[in-house]
Amino acid sequence: MLPFSFEYERPKSFQEAVTRFQQADQSGKEPMYISGATEFLTLGRINQVYTEAAIDVKGIPEGKVIQFDQGYLVLGANLTLTELEEANVFPLLTSTSKQIADHTARGKITLGGNICGQIFYREAVLPLLLADSQMVMVGPEGVKVKPINEIFYERLLLQKGEFLIQVATDTRYLHAPFISIKRRQQWDTGYPLITIAALKIDRKVRVAISGLCPFPFRSNEMEDALNNLEGSPQEKIQNALASIPSPILDDVEGSSEYRLFVLQNLLLDVYEALKFGERE
């Protein structure tokens, strides 16, 4: 039950959604797009989200596609994490998103909702950062396509009235060797202490991390340190840790020292699986 009153609309096309957003905005209704609506409900009930116009985009057909097109895998942003798992077209994405929340909740949480949510973790972003995916957004200026590493900085940098409709990934990344590990404080479901996803392509290992900072990230400096051909794996890991962005989370889930300790071990696991910084 949400404590505030709002208009609920379910447009059938993205053009209609954008128009509805603009109209509601002009009337001062602080509109927001929603898709799975799970964060809307859970944060809304504790007054951390407010709108007078919720525009539900999950019925828009372009947001539901799973298709291969000109060397790209195109995934609709309104697909639920369960739909992505069942299709299993991008194994690294499946393996990472399969660890989000729990099986039943994943039947409602959407890819777009996870990427654009307010919570820190947004673990489904990690594989997309590693695979240089293209983000397809729609808004008042029409359709926009941008590489994720240009438009995702701590969060997806959407303009007012824009929403994510699709994500396109070059198929050469789909079957590259990868590893995805989630460490929680306890239990096997829910939010991570730290999640790491890594992928090896063109003899280099890429890593993206969630739960260390208040945003998911991929760092070129960390990757350069890990892929350096000189030094032991431990030395490379120490050098990589020196390039971590700040701040490091320090909360009841884990102190910043503990998080760094867990990360070091995770990077060793990545080394075991993908052997970064070695001549082949």
């Binding site: 799975g36 609506a37 409900l41 909740a105 039947g107 409602k108």
Partner: peptide, 13 residues
């Protein structure tokens, strides 16, 4: 046919 947490869904959905 799929399990759903009914507290995570609005009736209008």
């Amino acid at each position: 046919g799929w399990p759903m947490k009914s507290c995570l869904m609005m009736a209008v959905e």
